[in-house]
Design a binder for these strands. Structure first.
Lengths: 309, 309
DNA sequence: CGCAATGGTCCATATTGTGGACTATCGATC
DNA sequence: GATCGATAGTCCACAATATGGACCATTGCG
């Protein structure tokens, strides 16, 4: 179990940061979002304890997701790849601030009060994308009878931010809210990657190179092929490459400025992705992606109108 | 504006931590939750950068709550009371991890993608209290026509975790989700304090002494009086002591082990709290508090039953 | 009764975060 | 258009801070 949980083992710690690897990236005026976590090697920007704490916080959330009792310290140390003492020190700090709580009996950790509060506060924020996509997700799940996902781009990575079960008999647990993978790994993630410019694709691949060591079968060449195929087909297909037998199909969602910021995808078993059905699903997803794009464009307009009265 | 936003100015930075102030606290076997933030003085526990980052993260959330454009760096430095360079360094780290995002145009900060994800993940966690209280909050808001709050105890502090608008014409903005105040300040908060043992009350007061410097009119004597009165009345009344004209009435909610872990409260203007109505509201709140207590007791039972089959 | 897990603690070390001082821009106001 | 007072962002010498290996205490298993 515990399939491919966003394997956030920090960059290769022992050795030094090889100063090669052109620090391109950020060239594209895409966003102010930095390129998460594992670029750590090339970022001595003076706050690694915080960085580690935040990664660990996320880890606690993801690992404890389906475990009401929480995660053990041992497991957290194993998965995070940091020395136990460090992990514990950080956990103590997180507990002190209420972002994590520790079960007094089992000594296991899970997300705490403040995590929920933060979510409430984040919910209030004008989340156009989340807003605009809710209905689409439900419609897709109903129409396709498959589990449906919203995946959002974050730097060189993709985060699953929403998940809608379909009415069908097949449940897919390969992807859950909070999971983060390098762009290109997974259907939605690949759809986003394919929608980027060639330059951006190169930057992303360079950025995620070390992380992708944890994903066998996703070397640069393979990803180039996948991108190529996705562009040709008009949709991204994950044919069981991450988890055997778990297939998925995704298309990118573009924001008001026409940048691919997210993706819609549906997942199921291989048998449910024969040729005809693929086209059907792709059409469905494309329609909803366009609808979301339109909604984002509208809210963008009304926003700037309100901004300068 | 920006009335009493949980004034989280860190402990007195310049001078040294006066090693007096008996480090009692934690004696009561209440919870593993530490006594947040401002006890910092007496906790050199080796992770202050993380502590500061988390406090700042919360600050961003609270300050940006009603401001879609976000908070400026200047404001954050002012409110947090830390040097600008530090605040910025932390913000950069938070942005890098996606917990905060920065508007490229205005350079202002607001909660980011990961904050929402964390909320989703926290939502999945068995939040018995939140679960059990939802209906109660709605019922109270409807019946009383006032704005209704759920306040949760966290160490020596109380955090507002939920808020339900009533159908009435009066809107109360004195308290919002995410606000944190020392126990005893505010109706719900005072209700919790009053439900504690005398020993615990003393510990809490000692713990929050420095924080309460920011809350004029809440010295130890006053709080002792308020606790006394609350116990006598059977409900806690905030008669406009925090914000003039803003009154509220609260009662404590006890968990399965009969510890006061939260409070229900309703807020409005002074005129709507005459003698008769107070009793009415108190009865209403008490009924719902008992109902929540019962629900918590039940889910506790079924949990332990499931635990040992 | 070891053995191999677990959670938790200590403390010398130097890496890490710190924050005062500096610069760069922007938009009023004179 | 020069001056002032905001703002965001950058730099870097210094030491306080986080680090993590080694250690101890319990627990559960064979």
């Amino acid at each position: 179990m515990m399939a491919a949980v966003s394997a956030n083992a920090d960059a290769p710690r022992p050795a030094a940061p090889p100063p090669k690897l052109g620090n391109a990236a950020r060239r594209s005026a895409s966003w102010t979002i930095a390129h998460t976590a594992d670029d750590a090697a090339e970022r001595p920007s003076g706050s690694q304890s915080i960085q580690r704490a935040l990664v660990l916080l996320n880890l606690v959330g993801v690992l404890a997701r389906d475990r009401p009792d929480g995660v053990s310290l041992a497991e957290l140390t194993r998965v995070s790849g940091r020395p136990k003492a460090s992990v514990r020190r950080i956990l103590v700090a997180l507990v002190a601030e209420g972002y994590v709580e520790q079960d007094p009996d089992t000594a296991c950790y899970r997300l705490g009060l403040q995590a929920g509060v933060l979510g409430e506060l984040a919910g209030n924020r004008a989340d156009d994308l989340g807003e605009a996509s809710t209905d689409s997700l439900i419609r897709i799940a109903d129409a396709s009878t498959e589990t449906t996902f919203l995946t959002v781009r974050h730097g060189s990575y993709a985060v699953c931010t929403r998940r809608q079960e379909g009415p069908g008999p097949i449940r897919n647990y390969a992807l859950a809210v909070g999971d983060r993978h390098p762009l290109g790994i997974g259907a939605g993630s690949l759809a986003i990657l394919g929608a980027l410019s060639d330059d951006d694709v190169e930057d992303v691949l360079a950025s995620t190179a070390t992380t992708r060591d944890h994903y066998p079968g996703f070397d640069d060449d393979t990803l180039h092929d996948l991108v190529h195929r996705s562009r040709h087909d008009g949709y991204a297909l994950n044919d069981g490459r991450v988890i055997a037998g778990s297939w998925a199909l995704g298309v990118a969602v573009h924001d008001a400025a026409d940048r691919p910021v997210a993706a819609l995808s549906v997942a199921s078993i291989a048998e449910r992705f024969d040729g005809a059905r693929r086209d059907e699903l792709a059409a469905l997803l494309h329609a909803e992606a366009r609808s979301i794009h339109a909604a984002l464009t509208d809210s963008q307009k009304s926003r700037s109108a309100r901004g300068r009265p």
